[in-house]
């Protein structure tokens, strides 16, 4: 479903991604872990072309993201095509980014209606079903300011799902939440994983990575240092840097 080969990205003089190689099969959940500044979020934003890449390529469902191959070089796509690609890749952000001037329901129907031209009644029906699925059916007419962080994030997940994406990207979805609200969101994400959604999750929640992840990749300094099944990467890391990172994050050298 997702293939990234040799992805490089620079911000000015500083190279943030130094050649990322990753693959995610359909229905697989890949968790990206690593210290801040390692490029995890940047890489995630490259997957749906919110950020440009300087070299390499990212292919989602057989189509190169953000660029068109022509004459042996990659040319940036026109906005219309980039939008079409982004519409089938869902993204959930650390700070939710709900539209504050719209209710939860309006947040969810906005893109299907305006981007795909779906009729309002149909979009509303599907939106209510999605709200039900994330456990917020009674909050359809609430404005984001009236919702807790966990509720806002669940609405954000429903909003992304409304576009029926092939791939869901999560950028530290629970980092901005109070601890007691984290589980509600992780439960929704676990449910998605069980339903077979292809997911790439940047997270610090090692328990989630261990339980729901099919593979874990450790990024550091713009490169994938180590990747494999959670049981291996988290419990028996092969590289020193992975061990050091996990020791800091977990307090011991292994996932509890």
């Amino acid at each position: 479903m997702l293939v990234a080969r040799g992805v490089h990205k620079r911000y000015g003089r500083e190279e943030v991604l130094k050649g990322i190689d990753l693959e995610v099969a359909a229905g697989e959940v890949l968790c990206l872990i690593g210290p801040s500044g390692s490029g995890k979020s940047t890489f995630l934003r490259c997957i749906n072309h919110l950020e440009r890449i300087d070299a390499g390529r990212i292919v989602v469902d057989g189509e190169t993201v953000g660029y068109r191959e022509h004459g042996g070089r990659l040319w940036e796509l026109r906005e219309r095509d980039a939008c079409r690609q982004r519409a089938s890749i869902g993204m959930v952000f650390q700070r939710f980014n709900l539209f504050p001037h719209m209710t939860a329901l309006q947040n969810i129907i906005e893109a299907p209606m305006r981007v795909r031209g779906e009729p309002r009644t149909h979009a509303t029906e599907r939106a209510r079903a999605l709200l039900e699925r994330v456990g917020l059916a009674d909050k359809a007419d609430a404005y984001p300011s009236r919702l807790s962080g966990g509720q806002q994030q669940r609405v954000a997940i429903a909003r992304a799902l409304a576009m029926q994406p092939k791939l869901m990207l999560f950028d530290e979805p629970t980092s901005a939440l109070d601890p007691e609200l984290v589980d509600d969101v992780l439960d929704v994400m676990r449910g998605l994983a069980e339903d077979g959604m292809t997911m790439v999750v940047v997270t610090h929640e090692m328990a989630f990575a261990r339980d729901a992840g099919d593979r874990v990749a450790f990024l550091d300094g713009g490169l994938v240092v180590e990747q494999g099944p959670p049981a291996q990467v988290l419990a028996q890391p092969r590289h020193e840097r992975t061990r050091a990172f996990l020791a800091r994050v977990l307090g011991t050298g292994a996932a509890r």
């Binding site: 980014n97 981007v115 992304a160």
Partner: peptide, 14 residues
């Protein structure tokens, strides 16, 4: 907030 633009674009809006 810049996140608003991010979310809009991520949903496929021009």
């Amino acid at each position: 907030d810049r996140g608003q633009a991010d979310a809009s674009l991520a949903l496929g809006m021009s």
